[in-house]
């Protein structure tokens, strides 16, 4: 065979017509696999809880050596403290610890805030304070344990990893205090995870999405419906946008939010629903957010949360 033939063959190979439906079929394959994977993950999570507690406890003990407790003294620390957002009277970040570690190109920088919740009379609300700090602790221990497991797995080999966890108080108004955690994991590519804690300042309790609404109302249906609508509009407007919706196999699709779906209230007083990567869209879409028009839940929401 001569050069000319090879060139000719290659040309024809490159001219093999790509059917219009190819992209769709590729997306269907991705969707099918990701839905199965997330089902599998959910099963694993349920059965893996007990195992995990044991592991986390060990990791937490090891982590203690590296945790720096920020005291209220020293120039560098004063600078760090000044960065803590100003918080209202009822809930505040009183201090934070920092877990820092560096091993062979694997770095972790995890900030762990400690929140204090006070009753209106100024006494500390022990129950909520303990509950939120315990939950934050468990969450950060989990990230640290995963990091340490990854370091151990990499051994002396080349591991490139950078995990950071930062927090910010995103809402602090008369009714609601919300603290948001952003986990960023960078290996070959990045993964972004969001976790948000909310305290209802009227009751002093840690609340989830259902805590925004009146007792016994169905807020899940109208919000889910609105999200599906927004997904459809976005996909129609931009073909690079893809959500798990309206596929041939309905069980893969986004069905509804849950009472624990991540949310926050943005600066305009609108409810924003947050989905982590892979939850409702393929990984390339990243973590996605939907602002819900207040009209949708007007009659359902308690006073003072949304505008």
């Amino acid at each position: 065979m001569n050069e000319e033939n090879v060139t000719k063959l290659k040309e024809e190979y490159e001219n093999i017509k790509i059917p219009a439906s190819l992209r769709q079929r590729v997306e269907a394959g991705i969707r099918q696999a990701e839905m199965e994977r997330s089902e599998h993950m959910n099963e694993k999570k349920k059965s893996g809880v007990m195992v995990y507690v044991g592991r986390a406890a060990g990791a937490a003990a090891a982590a203690l050596l590296l945790i720096t407790v920020m005291a209220n003294s020293g120039a560098g620390i004063a600078h760090a403290m000044s960065k803590i957002p100003v918080i209202g009277a009822i809930a505040e970040v009183v201090t934070f610890r920092q877990y820092e570690s560096s091993n062979n190109n694997m770095d972790a920088n995890i900030k762990i805030p400690e929140v204090s919740v006070k009753n209106e009379d100024g006494t500390v609300n022990e129950e909520t304070t303990q509950k939120i700090n315990k939950s934050i602790q468990e969450y950060t221990d989990e990230i640290i344990a995963q990091y340490e497991a990854d370091v151990a797995a990499a051994g002396d080999g080349e591991g490139h990893m950078d995990v950071s966890l930062d927090y910010s108080v995103i809402t602090d108004n008369e009714r609601l205090f919300s603290i948001r955690f952003d986990e960023l994991l960078i290996m070959a590519s990045g993964t972004q995870m969001v976790k948000i804690y909310h305290i209802d300042k009227q009751t002093g309790e840690l609340i989830g999405l259902s805590g925004l609404f009146k007792d016994g109302v169905d807020f899940i249906t109208p919000i889910s419906e609105n999200i599906r609508q927004q997904m459809k509009e976005q996909m129609a407007a931009d073909e690079s946008v893809m959500y798990f919706l309206d596929s041939d196999v309905p069980e893969w699709d986004f069905q509804a939010i849950t009472e624990d779906t991540t949310f926050y209230v943005n600066e305009n007083g609108k409810l924003v629903i947050v989905f982590n990567e892979y939850e409702v869209a393929p990984g390339y879409m990243g973590s996605v957010e939907f602002e819900i028009p207040t009209e949708v839940v007007q009659d359902l929401v308690q006073d003072g949360f949304l505008k």
């Binding site: 995963q146 994991l185 590519s189 990984g283």
Partner: peptide
């Protein structure tokens, strides 16, 4: 991590 390699 599985999620990273999956994304890749």
């Amino acid at each position: 991590r599985t999620d990273i390699i999956q994304k890749k």
